[in-house]
Design a protein around this nucleic acid. Sequence first.
DNA 1: GGTCTGTATTGATATTCATTGATACAAGCT
DNA 2: AGCTTGTATCAATGAATATCAATACAGACC
Lengths: 130, 130
Amino acid sequence: MSKQELEVIGQDSACCPGLAAAPLDEDQAADLAKFFKALGDPVRLRLMSMIASRGEGSEGSARGEVCVCELTPAFDLSQPTISHHLKLLRQAGLIDCERRGTWVYYWVLPGVLDRLAGFLATPRAAGAGA
Amino acid sequence: MSKQELEVIGQDSACCPGLAAAPLDEDQAADLAKFFKALGDPVRLRLMSMIASRGEGSEGSARGEVCVCELTPAFDLSQPTISHHLKLLRQAGLIDCERRGTWVYYWVLPGVLDRLAGFLATPRAAGAGA
DNA sequence: GGTCTGTATTGATATTCATTGATACAAGCT
DNA sequence: AGCTTGTATCAATGAATATCAATACAGACC
């Protein structure tokens, strides 16, 4: 098995070597760019932040959900637009949602942000400052 | 302008609270999305990876530069296209370059990747797995 | 000077993307 | 059943983007 699945940052893998560890091949780059592309929009980044600041829901106690009805009014955008951005974040594998009665709740998929952070961090993160 | 500069992840600040710490306001989100947007393209992510894997040039000894002449042939894209992507990465504040003789060398701006990593990492990065 | 190589810029084109109004769907309520 | 509210999807449009061929620019070398 050379690399049978290249689960770059998949769901459960221990995450890839890191951006600065070695040059990415095309497939790895495509998979990872998907995440950054989703975060590369101010609206989506704010949405992520609003959802993530409720907790990432890793333990199972408080999953840190946010109702769409709390997200939409925070923007000067139409409701379909917010819904669209939430869909993109979900398709990117950053968040998930569940309908409960009339309302839909979103939460950050556990571990994704930390895996991305680990990917960006340089091996010897030494004297960054000054 | 109330908050004098809001240097979200600027150049020298200690970096913002983090994505999951508190909801970002519009300006913070716009500033940060710029970085992720630049990384949200497979070609640029590969370029970044190729440059970053040469070292981030923080100490001052080996800055870890890469000649454009090493980058371009790694892609099935025209030379202007690669040049364009490098320009975007530079405008985003991720890399910088210098011409030396005929060749142009690029390197990763020190600390940027680690600041971004710190921004993404959740406060209590606890049991992500299982 | 002229020429050659490496890199950036320009102009054009095709594609992608963000946004909206209109509409459909889902669930609660009367 | 009808009505109302919350959310998603559809269709259309304008803006942004990736890409290339052609060209300009910079420096080395003759």
